[in-house]
Design a protein around this nucleic acid. Structure first.
Lengths: 216, 216
DNA sequence: AACAGAATAGGACAGCCATCCTAATTGCGA
DNA sequence: TCGCAATTAGGATGGCTGTCCTATTCTGTT
């Protein structure tokens, strides 16, 4: 759901203008922090230090900025998952890595919730055309998790297990955002990892051990 | 999180004016369906068939309507929980009842998510003063669930277990809203009830066994 | 019937917003 | 250096929103 920040230059290679990339980056952050509807052109303009009217050279509407933001998020998440596959040799380790995101990004999550879940929820309420694309963000993780469970030999249940892990992340994120309770996040991550170990086959792993292994 | 509808007259006894109650009722529904920010006075006015300017006889701002809506929701949820305590003899049965809400109200949840979770998420993004009260809605369920687990003899873990059940409901609601997958809801409810049975002591959903143990 | 206060209607207002338009500036190839 | 296209600035515009104000209608009491 969440993702490390990638530099503007990297994005720029794909999308053309530097200004355009900076607009997308600023919009991404502001949409996450304050929501899509509540973020005005003026706010993005202040952030990018660009004239309001100038947006329309790069985008022809606010909706189009949203599309670009979602595309950027999809790209960033895909890149993150590929990185995980390079780092983690086992599917179980990769899933654990996903579970640990709510801990890794706990500061942002407590402040603003899950970028994927909150955007999807908002666009659903607005009955916005981009809702379909936002759901695509969820699908990226769903498909990836499904693959990992299939690799663990649970092909028949793979999708159900993937959805269960996604539900975990959304539940934790929503409550962490509401209550700002860090211990709660730790407990739920531990519980989820315990649950996962029944599917990976190896013995249960303590959170600290997993972190130590990840940093090794 | 969700709640049966109570008639206007019932609410009216407490709050005074009939028109006021109708405004709150309409606002409650519209805030749920389209979000607080995206719901305009005009939309509520159309629903209640009342003049725009007339709102300010009953409320002195939109924020005040939100406060009234949250108060109404708290009242309705409290009433629902009291009803459950009258209906269900065992704490385990009551918790199961809570778990089943996502199934009972699956239509609304698939369309608009959880009324408590989505409101809290939105108000957090808006940095709205009423966020505190919206969190209070969560607290109503948290405290109640904690009580039920304590009655089951798990006082030490009661709050953690309550939070776990809340996280379940939020995760399922968010994904049900995104994917409109009814089977997913069923699976997760079943999984959660299985999990719960480890704390109620009985093998399956036998109410009398749970009752006997609770009274022991 | 007369009056008072509650309740309602509907227009007026200022502020914010996304969008559009046009002029100015920049950067780059010839 | 010139010229053209890409890029930017910033004001103008119209629509929507929450809020306010005042005139009117309703309701119950004397």
């Amino acid at each position: 759901m969440w993702c490390e920040v990638f530099s503007i230059e990297e994005v720029n290679v794909v999308s053309g203008s530097v200004t355009r990339a900076r607009i997308v980056e600023a919009a991404d952050e502001l949409f996450y922090q304050h929501g899509y509807e509540h973020t005005s052109f003026a706010a993005i303009a202040d952030e990018v230090r660009i004239s309001r009217g100038n947006f329309y050279y790069h985008f022809k509407s606010k909706d189009e900025i949203l599309d670009a933001v979602i595309d950027a998020r999809v790209g960033a998440r895909r890149a993150m998952l590929e990185q995980w596959e390079a780092d983690e040799p086992t599917p179980g380790g990769r899933i654990r890595r996903f579970i640990h995101i709510v801990l890794t990004n706990r500061a942002d999550i407590q402040n603003h919730g899950c970028p994927v879940g909150t955007l999807t929820t908002e666009l659903a309420k607005l009955d916005h055309a981009a809702l379909k694309d936002a759901k695509g963000l969820f699908e990226v993780f769903r498909v990836w998790l499904r693959e990992q469970f299939a690799l663990l030999g649970h092909e028949a249940q793979a999708d159900a297990l993937a959805m269960h892990v996604l539900a975990f992340s959304q539940g934790v994120a929503t409550l962490a955002n509401a209550f700002h309770d860090e211990e709660f996040i730790c407990r739920e991550v531990q519980r989820m990892c315990d649950w996962l170990s029944a599917y990976t086959g190896d013995a249960e792993q303590d959170v600290r051990d997993a972190d130590a292994q990840a940093n090794a």
